[in-house]
Design a protein around this nucleic acid. Structure first.
Lengths: 242, 242
DNA sequence: GCCCTTCTTGTCACAGTGACAATAAGCCTA
DNA sequence: TAGGCTTATTGTCACTGTGACAAGAAGGGC
């Protein structure tokens, strides 16, 4: 009410990154092993505090992305996931963290020799299991990030962000299968994905082999929203209220 | 990097609320007229700083909801919208604001006699127009909130939050029409909305009149996610990339 | 009882989808 | 160089969900 004669409390602001990729047909996330307390030795999402008082949030996220994952501010899908600010989530004090979601194409090697050489790709299924307790509330953040990715696959062209500049339809299907955790019919997927307006466009007459008949190459189309949307099979578990 | 010998910057944390309702068949938002600088006299979203160092974000949002809108922490849909922390968005310093989205049933009167008697419902179309410049970056926050509501109407039972405990199908249709800004066929809407599993259930044999044939009453069903989803007409403007 | 209004139930053609068969195009081997 | 193997691409078919539109049902007012 009377903001005049009252000093509002301050908090520490951090950013955390959920960086997803596809490796060995599995959805994987980039985790680092913490070298300092708290949670020293635990796995955690890449992230850190704001550098200075005037640093923009998105800028900070990109900076961390570069520092901890060696991924420059290229055209890397980076989207705000949410804020996590429950008191007590960080033993160091009142830390409020802004989480971002990033998706990157298959990378041949885990980033190494960089600032944070201890960054390693980990299958999401393992990171979310009880076997690998993450630091802070990072398990929740990761779960939210994966959920977001699953949803966005339905209505946006996010799936192409998992692929390189060109890709085959089967590769695109593998993205959907890995992220959604389902099996899809190649024939129907082929038909469907091509009927979505502006999703993917043929990339030259090029081809690539793989054992059987060579597959056509495609690249991301002009549209980022999908019409009609890709529909996820298996009537999602109709959650009950309350 | 070396978190040890370095003091991370602190910021001021605030919450802002986008409170939507339906009045006179229009989507309206609750705005307050600011009584103090900065932006004194301008319209703004309800909101404020954290009360104390240990206050939870959601708690703070509910507190503001009560203080500025007189809406208790009843079963009011309150959902995190995003973080707005661009440096310079608030002349008072580095203020990072967490925005929440709330939806409430038709209220007979603008909240009055309360703490913030200057709160008033404003049609969203007007609040987003150039005619009524909002304080800070609240226009952007409002736009994001409305977008979110539009999307959630498709796949969640959010529409029922605009209605009272019981409602007719026509009333529900008015929600969709107002939020989406479209006209829907009553016959198809009637069929569709009833075929969605667990969306709405009949509320006793009760009825209510309105001039013509009395309409059946319904209440929210057990499911909060819609299958199949309500589809928004008019192929959304396929946005171009870049 | 008749008209007017609004709610509710049908009908019909058509697009989109899941299930599944058949063909095409390379490589590999004999 | 003719199979044979593997994988990609093209079809087919039945069925569901949807948009467009007509017809019937249930009150209120005169």
């Amino acid at each position: 009410m009377n903001d005049d004669c009252w000093v509002p409390p301050t908090v520490l602001l951090a950013v955390d990154l959920v960086i997803l990729t596809l490796r060995e047909s599995q959805l994987q996330v980039l985790l680092i092993e913490r070298g300092v307390a708290p949670y020293r030795g635990s796995l955690a999402l890449p992230g850190g505090f704001l550098n200075h008082d005037q640093e923009d949030l998105l800028t900070a996220a990109h900076r961390e992305l570069d520092e901890e994952a060696g991924l420059g501010p290229e055209e890397l899908h980076l989207e705000q996931l949410g804020v996590y600010g429950t008191p007590g989530r960080d033993p160091r004090g009142r830390v409020v963290s802004v989480a971002y979601l990033a998706v990157t194409p298959r990378l041949p090697e885990p980033v190494a020799g960089t600032d944070a050489a201890d960054a390693k790709w980990t299958p999401v299924a393992h990171a979310l299991s009880d076997a690998a307790p993450l630091a802070f509330d990072h398990r929740q953040i990761l779960a939210d990030g994966v959920d977001r990715a699953r949803e966005k696959l339905e209505r946006s062209a996010l799936a192409t962000a998992f692929c390189g500049p060109t890709f085959t339809i089967v590769e695109l299907q593998e993205v959907y299968e890995a992220v959604w955790g389902v099996r899809l019919d190649p024939r129907n997927f082929y038909r469907k994905v091509q009927s979505v307006d502006g999703f993917i466009v043929p990339a030259g007459p090029t081809r690539r082999t793989d054992g059987g008949r060579p597959a056509r190459l495609f690249k991301p189309g002009p549209h980022t929203t999908l019409h009609p949307p890709m529909t996820r099979p298996q009537g999602p578990t109709g959650k009950e209220k309350t």
